[in-house]
Design a protein around this nucleic acid. Sequence first.
DNA 1: GGAGCAAACCTATGGCGATTAGGCTAAGAC
DNA 2: GTCTTAGCCTAATCGCCATAGGTTTGCTCC
Lengths: 193, 193
Amino acid sequence: MPRADARVTRERLIESAVALLDEHGPEALTLTAVARALGVRAPSLYHHVDGLDGVRLEVRVHGIERLGDALQRASSGRSGRDALSAVARAYVDFGRHQPGLYALTLAGSDGGDERVRAAGARVLDTVLAVLHGYGLQDEAALHATRFVRSALHGFAALERAGGFALSLDQDASFDHLVDAVDAGLERLANAQA
Amino acid sequence: MPRADARVTRERLIESAVALLDEHGPEALTLTAVARALGVRAPSLYHHVDGLDGVRLEVRVHGIERLGDALQRASSGRSGRDALSAVARAYVDFGRHQPGLYALTLAGSDGGDERVRAAGARVLDTVLAVLHGYGLQDEAALHATRFVRSALHGFAALERAGGFALSLDQDASFDHLVDAVDAGLERLANAQA
DNA sequence: GGAGCAAACCTATGGCGATTAGGCTAAGAC
DNA sequence: GTCTTAGCCTAATCGCCATAGGTTTGCTCC
């Protein structure tokens, strides 16, 4: 029975952690900093989460869930290339707007946490639904999912790391990427038949 | 004028750092650990590199150079889809065999270091050479490079992070990825014309 | 309306890693 | 042989994670 006057709640803790992460990078996510943001001392957090890794886990779960939300929202009511384009845009935008949060969704030893698995499955299902629009099914669809996620994650990660150093328009590159992925999916769909 | 009996050299320092990274992960790369491996105390390292970030920079430069070596070796004597396949395999294998080193090649604020730029340019050029085999030139080739690097980095990163949770064969997924990227490049080459 | 339980915090402490300051030693130049 | 300086060192500070153990104070239930 949680007390009503608690300064620390899972929601507020995640909120603070995400803010630190997005504004000051991964290094800034410390127990001390989170505690300070919540008006509390660092050891107090141990009553709510399992140390720094626990904070990261909570944030990761939250991040994957939010990513799943964004992808599902983007794909709803669309199909085929249209759906691919919308989902891809949503994915990349998520990485752009919440770089710190996004980085945590993938990096990490999640020790087989159930919530991570469930949230990840939802992301996977959303992508799979898009691929069905290309006629991809079963194993071929799963391989294709890995291709799509590789391309999207790679793009988001390279963008974040400053890997696209040249002064070439990134939005144009994104459009080319979607075009190329579209062609790749058509190839995989044909190869499957 | 360096002394002959020095225990710390750039080479030995990088070697130790890479070993720590590949065997025990990013967290294990500490000044204390590197110093211990070299038979020296941590503060002594400051005479050779600029702190922990300096170590990371040295390792990053080394990693990008080695990646460049691997890609160039893989592409030499091949062209077209054959070259793409070989380069992709070399890229992914690099990430598999040296996960810690690979992770550092991209993650990071390299503050515009000249050696990083140069080594990165060599990687870029190798990929560009492959794309010329598809008839891609100029701007279109650069956009295509981003597509290829996104797909390869994404695959390597997801593999390393355990993002491919399902028990689906990863080598088969890799073959599908190469196939899809090949199709994507053909599309981009046609769109260019 | 008070007793008791447990939630929510706290201080104290230990340990480790980064980094700075300041000093010793001995290799190699001249 | 002197002297410069590269290469290491110890000492000390600071920030952070983590554990141990204690105090306050809502809440619930008689």
